[in-house]
Design a binder for these strands. Structure first.
Lengths: 185, 185
DNA sequence: TGCCTAATTGTCAGTCCCTGCCAGTACGTA
DNA sequence: TACGTACTGGCAGGGACTGACAATTAGGCA
């Protein structure tokens, strides 16, 4: 009766995004997701701390990649290190454009997901800041570079979503330019 | 038996922050908050869309003040307009330091509140961006100035909380300096 | 082969958040 | 008086989430 399931996390994730897309977030219950994945509600809550987390567990892996990219980057000004790391990791978007857009559509349609996405962004910013200070970059500069990097990241993703022609790196650089223009006056 | 209550929102708010502070967020139930406020659970959910919102309903008033300050500001570069508005509105912090710190301690201690705070920040950023474009500031510059303003705002509040000596405006200006240093390299 | 342990899943009961619905009360207006 | 509007209480119920315990599987070891 009880048998071990391979890739339970992925199965929950795929079932959830499909149900959220077709029926909406609020009218999809956790038991429904579990049934579609061939598991139970109780098991769902063993893999995810709550309902929205089912769409965000990959973000943790992404954060680790960003930290690794910062550690491996050549010495430079703080913000340049962050931007290079963004460019290095961001190729994922160009390679998986369809999946990313589908997930973004679901996230954009439900407040619960937007809240969670903001928390992941915050976590990413703190991780970037910590990685910079580990490179013996002064605290205030590290913090500002991390926060600025998150802003560039967010706006670049937004523009990239609406522009099928240009790659992600292009938008990162364009955003950096716009930011510099606004800040230096 | 049923009598109209004056300032129900404020009563809920005060009762909630006191209970959250003493017993913690998770172990404080909505019926407990309602009882402490002399009202019922059902009425609580008529004033607040959910449990965390009881600590954030003032943020909406604050956002309106920011928009007003931007509308009334003299012509200048986009980011300067935002920063002047922050300085104009931010005196509230110096005037209510004790209350602000008490509320911040509760928010910092519970994830639910941090999520909600990030959403309010996002909403504030969008409102600032809209107010700037209403002043016929170009879209990309408005967006970047708004996002940058939010970063300055967040970091300035953080530093202000830990520094009883300096006023809020001082930290806004210091953050702006740090940001310019990081961006211009 | 058989036993033991750890890890995973299912089952069940229970708490809390939040909502819909109906009834009761206060207040203003005609 | 009659009526409408706004506010509140009470009750029932669904859905999110947790704790405790049982059942199954996988793997190590004698």
């Amino acid at each position: 009766m009880v048998q071990r399931i391979e890739n339970a996390r992925e199965r929950f994730g795929k079932a959830a995004i499909e149900l959220f897309r077709t029926r909406g977030y609020a009218s999809t219950t956790v038991p429904q997701i579990a049934a579609a994945a061939g598991l139970t509600e109780r098991t769902f809550f063993r893999y995810f701390i709550d309902k929205p987390e089912v769409l965000f567990w990959r973000a943790n892996e992404f954060e680790a990649e960003m930290v690794r990219a910062i550690n491996q980057a050549a010495d430079a000004q703080p913000l340049d290190i962050v931007i290079r790391a963004l460019e290095a990791v961001g190729c994922f978007f160009d390679d998986n454009r369809a999946d990313v857009l589908a997930r973004q559509a679901v996230v954009a349609a439900h407040v619960d997901f937007q809240e969670r996405e903001l928390m992941k962004m915050r976590s990413l910013g703190m991780a970037i800041c910590a990685a910079l200070t580990d490179r013996s970059i002064e605290g205030k500069a590290a913090r500002m570079a991390a926060e600025t990097g998150i802003v560039i990241w967010r706006v670049a993703i937004e523009r990239w979503s609406e522009d099928p022609a240009s790659g992600f790196v292009h938008h990162v650089r364009a955003c950096t330019e716009d930011l510099a223009t606004v800040v230096t006056r």
